[in-house]
Every structure is written in structure tokens, then in C-alpha cells.
Design a protein around this nucleic acid. Structure first.
Lengths: 333, 333
DNA sequence: TTGTAGGCGTTATCAA
DNA sequence: TTGATAACGCCTACAA
């Protein structure tokens, strides 16, 4: 690898001049400039970014911490962040944390030793205290970590309420809920939205809420049990799409037809919701936009040292699909 | 941030001594060593990795290039690579290339400027020539790039053949194929495997092969057309699971029952294949193991400068699920 | 307009 | 057993 010194020698100038020409700052004679560019070309010189980082104290890298990229909600988020960081000349580091606090702190430290420029963090386990050790900007994504930290989220509570209202609108009389991870902020909000919509109903019963821990299998099992014990349930709001798919399987194994015996609404709008049969009605989050927005906010913070704490809440949107498309009922409305 | 000099001052020693104590190399008096550790503790000193990288010429980072992390095959691969790299003290960089040659070369260059230690590459567009500019070790994953480059793949051809044989075994008489991306090496192999199994059959007709470009929608549309024109098709081998899901939708919209009217086998074994209804029979790849193996091979190359070109081919395995579980036929076998 | 020289933080060589 | 010092490759006062 050629260094700046090689280029300088080749062009018969000093390294300072090469640097100036290369970075277009400071004066440079047209002829000198030409010689330098020629030399760069000839030697196929490319500046060493590590040396640059050392000098500048910034590495041009941005990290995204997610619980598990294998969870289908995160790839689209990651893609958005990567696209944006890349577009702005940054490199993209991905970290799977399993929501483990130690792992997260580990990454935070290790990457700061690499002069990382900023973090985007999806976490339901980090506390505001944990953020104290951060020396660089960070944005919380999908889940709030601390009120004093910028964040990008969705209206989980009112979105959940909309989902349940939709089930009511198509004629459901007994609506149950499969809840997500207990300690996750967004799961709690979605349950609250469900309660907003049903707790006044005379049929409401706390046994209509079961936990699926955001997982396909657990949701399927929990729902099979619940449906067996409460055969009059005719609508289910699942806290996310994976669990929605679990509900579809549970229904199938009990011989319930969807949507006529049982209507289902999910939450998230991941690709899976469309590929499942019947296609799953869901509250779609603008996942890509959320990731992109978080990246924008972070880059803005990095480059302008603007420290106002921005907070962005996106709206979810109902995507009506087969799992709630009742031939008769929809016309009735 | 405290530097090694701060520590040296605090402990009344030279930076050289601090470095030796910190890295446990070279002699160090017990008492001196204690003082240095004390100083490190007190000042909460953490070595600057960028400076280290500059000196060593290696950054401790490994990059994975994939076409699109949004494609459900890649997250598990990425997770495996991240786990392994991390376990070995490396950081993990993820790059989405869209299989675009320019983007890929861009990443290759940019990351080498950052003294990246090695690459794992999933690509069906890079040529052996493109690999010339590589100054660091690289491993091809899922698809071969050059015979002179280490690679981790699966037995696409014989796996595909197994899939078709399974369809025959459960009683299918007219078996069609939805093929993947034309220019992808693995798609070609899978089609070849399909042909191995059917081209001697008297019913075989080249119209039984349609392209789905590895996509859900395209597969669905192509198969709807094909099934309408050839109602006697009773089995379909899809080149991947996404397209398998598309086939299920096509069948549903034509009122064909699965598996009795139409049996379906996919390829890949991504999570989707289990969550779809009916669950999709598929040839499962050991995705996580493949990623882990590629990472192992790469790290080994990096750390031992061992340049023998290893090649690893994993075997796919049939996972029988509902989409081929014919009540009558399976017993007949 | 250009060059000299010092520094970014670490490591390794060599002398003491 | 320890310390001075010269790299690693780049950038930017400052001087010329």
C-alpha cells in the first residue's frame, strides 16, 4: 500500500501539499495539483483511514444494537440504518445483544475504544444510568431508554386500540389479546391500548389476556389453550405478527376457520404478515422510515453537535387483509 | 479519555512499562505492575483501539457482504458470523450490496482503507477478477465466486433432486419447478437437480419450469398462470422457501387444496417455512453452521496466514411438513 | 504557494 | 527490570 509519503516523493512535493490537494483545502498551484493527482493515480494511492481516525478522533462508523437480527422485525430496520449511514459516508456495525445488559455495555465500551461516532440502540433492558458512560451521541429506536435521550417510536397504545376497534367493527364480540414480552415497554403499551378498548365491555375477562412473549411457538400454545377453554372468543389481537402467525396455526389445529370463526389482527407489518395464509391483517409500522429517521437524527447530532433531544413518534396504519375480511360482516358496516 | 501517558505519569513509570504491564509481555516488577494497574483503575483508562490498529496494521474488524439483509435467508447467516467474530474478539461490519458490482467493489475498497482484517462474501455477481484487488483474506459463502477462493456452500443439486424424489414418493405425477434468479449459481444447480429427477419422465415438459426470481410475488404470479394452463400439475418444487410461500398463495387463490391437490417442497429452511400455513416441507440448510464455519475459516486464515484454499460443502436435509403430508399417500409408501 | 515539524495513542526495539 | 525513542500514516499550525 502506497502512503502519502510515496506520493509526495513521486510528485516532488511535501506530504503537506499532497494532503492539501487531496482534501481540497488550502492553496495549491494548478500545476502542482496536477502532478499530485497524477502521482495518486499512478501509485493507486488510497489514504489510510485508521491514521485519519487517529488524528481526527472519529472513525466514521455508526453502530446499531438490536436484540437479534434473526427476529424479522429488525432486518428492515438494519437495512434502513445501513442505507442512510452509507449514504453519508459512514460504515455500519451491527451488534446482536439478546437484550443482555452485560453484552450491551460490552459493545458500548468496545466500540467507543474504536472511536465509534454514534449509536442507535434498540433495547428494553438498558436503564438511563447505563447511558451515563456514553461519550458519543446515541438514539433510542423502537423502545424508549431514557427521557433525556432522543428516540424514534410508534404510537403503540393508540395503534393497539385501533386494532381492537377494527375487530369490533367487523362484528367480533369476544376479543382476546396475546401479549408480548412482559418487560418490554412497547408490549406494555400495546396491552394498554387493548385494555382501553375492551375493559368497559361486560364480557371482558382477564383470562382473555395470555402471554406469547413475542414468539411464534409460545403464542400458538397459549392460544390453543385459551381457545379450548373459551370457545366463544371470536377475535384476537396479537401483540406482534409472529404471534399473529402463531394464532393462525392454533386456529388451524382447532379447526377454526379464519376469519369467520376467528378474526385476527397482528402488529408490526413485517413481510411475514403478507406471506402467511391467510394473509394477516396488521397494524403496520413504517419500519424503514423509522430506521432512516433514527439514522438521520444521529448523523445530525454527530455532525452539528446539536444536542436538543428530539423525539419522533410515527403512526401505525391498519392493513386489512384476509384474516379479518369477513364476506358478510364487512358489507354490514 | 485518559491516555497511556496519563497512566504512566500517575504511576510514575514510562509509557513503555504501562504497555508491557497491560499486554502482559516483557518483564515487570510485581510492585511496579501493581502501581500501574492501580493507575489504570483509578483513571478508568482504556486503550485507544485506533492507535493500536494504526500500529499493528490490523483493525480487528470482519465484514460480511450480503445482497440484502431483508431477505430472510441472511439474518441467520449474519447472526452466526457475528457470534463467531465476536467470540474471537473481532467487531462485525454488515454491508448490503444488492448484488451490485459497483457497490461491492466500493465496500471492498472502503473497508480495506480501514484496515479490515477479512471478508465473508455472499455474491452472485462478483467475478474472480474482482477479487484481485483484495489484500486480505476472504471466504465465499453460499455461492462460489472463484475456484481459488475458500468457500462454504451446500449440495444444491443433489438436494434439489431429493426434494423432487420426495414429491414422487408421495405420489405426485406431474411435478413443476419455480426457479430462482437466473444468474445465481445456486439457482442453476437447483434447477439442474430438478432436471436430473424429471427429464427422463414421459410427462416432462419444459413449460413446467417457470421463473420466480427468488421472490414471493413473482413466484405467486408465475405459478398461478402455470397452474391455470396446466391443471394436472400436482407437485411443485420451489427453488426457495419464499417462492414456496408464493406457491401456497397461488394454490389458495385457485382453490387447490394442499397437499392433496398440490404438494409443495421449498428450499432453505428459513423460519418462514414453519410459520406459513400449511407449514412448508423444505430442504433445510444448516444456515447457522454455514455462517459459523465461514467465520472460522476466515479467522483461521487471518491468524495463521494459512493460505490453503479450503472448501466446505454442507448437506441439506428434508424437513417433512404439512405441505407434503398426504394422509392416504404417506401410508402407502 | 509550499515545506517543516509536531502530534494523534500505541507498541516494540534497543540501551541502560 | 525499566525508559527513551522511533515508528504506524495522516493532518495542520506555523514558517518560509
Amino acid at each position: 500500500m502506497a502512503t502519502i509519503r510515496d506520493v509526495a516523493r513521486y510528485a516532488n512535493v511535501s506530504t503537506a501539499t499532497v494532503s492539501r490537494v487531496m482534501n481540497r483545502n488550502g492553496y495549491a498551484d494548478a500545476e502542482t495539483s496536477r502532478r499530485v493527482k497524477e502521482a495518486i493515480e499512478q501509485l493507486d494511492y488510497r489514504p489510510n483511514d485508521v491514521a485519519r481516525s487517529l488524528f481526527k478522533g472519529r472513525s466514521g462508523m455508526i453502530a446499531l444494537l438490536v436484540p437479534d437480527i434473526t427476529n424479522p422485525f429488525f432486518p428492515e430496520l438494519a437495512r434502513a440504518v445501513e442505507d442512510k449511514t452509507n449514504l453519508n459516508g459512514y460504515s455500519f456495525v451491527l451488534c446482536n445483544t439478546d437484550n443482555d445488559v452485560a453484552k450491551q455495555l460490552n459493545y458500548l465500551n468496545a466500540l467507543q475504544q474504536k472511536s465509534i461516532d454514534g449509536f442507535i440502540i434498540v433495547s428494553s433492558s438498558l436503564t438511563p444510568d447505563n447511558m451515563q458512560s456514553l461519550q458519543v451521541p446515541a438514539v433510542a429506536l423502537d423502545r424508549v431508554i431514557s427521557p433525556s435521550m432522543p428516540s424514534v417510536t410508534v404510537n403503540n397504545r393508540s395503534g393497539a386500540r385501533q386494532a381492537v376497534d377494527h375487530l369490533k367493527a367487523i362484528g367480533c364480540r369476544r376479543i382476546a389479546h396475546v401479549a408480548g414480552l412482559e418487560y418490554a415497554d412497547n408490549a406494555a403499551q400495546r396491552m394498554r391500548g387493548y385494555l382501553d378498548a375492551v375493559k368497559q365491555e361486560d364480557w371482558f375477562d382477564s383470562r382473555y389476556i395470555v402471554s406469547g412473549a413475542y414468539h411464534f411457538n409460545q403464542a400458538q400454545e397459549a392460544v390453543e389453550t385459551m381457545l379450548s377453554n373459551n370457545p366463544d372468543i371470536d377475535g384476537i389481537f396479537a401483540g406482534n405478527d409472529m404471534m399473529g402467525a402463531g394464532v393462525l396455526h392454533a386456529a388451524a389445529s382447532l379447526g377454526k376457520r379464519i376469519p369467520d370463526d376467528l378474526a385476527v389482527v397482528g402488529f408490526d407489518g413485517i413481510a411475514l404478515s403478507e406471506t402467511v395464509t391467510p394473509a394477516l391483517t396488521t397494524m403496520t409500522q413504517p419500519i424503514y422510515d423509522m430506521g432512516a429517521k433514527a439514522a438521520d437524527m444521529l448523523i445530525n447530532q454527530i455532525e452539528t453537535a446539536d444536542s436538543t433531544v428530539m423525539t419522533e413518534e410515527f403512526n401505525v396504519q391498519l392493513a386489512e387483509r384476509e384474516s379479518t375480511l369477513r364476506k358478510a360482516a364487512t358489507n354490514e358496516q
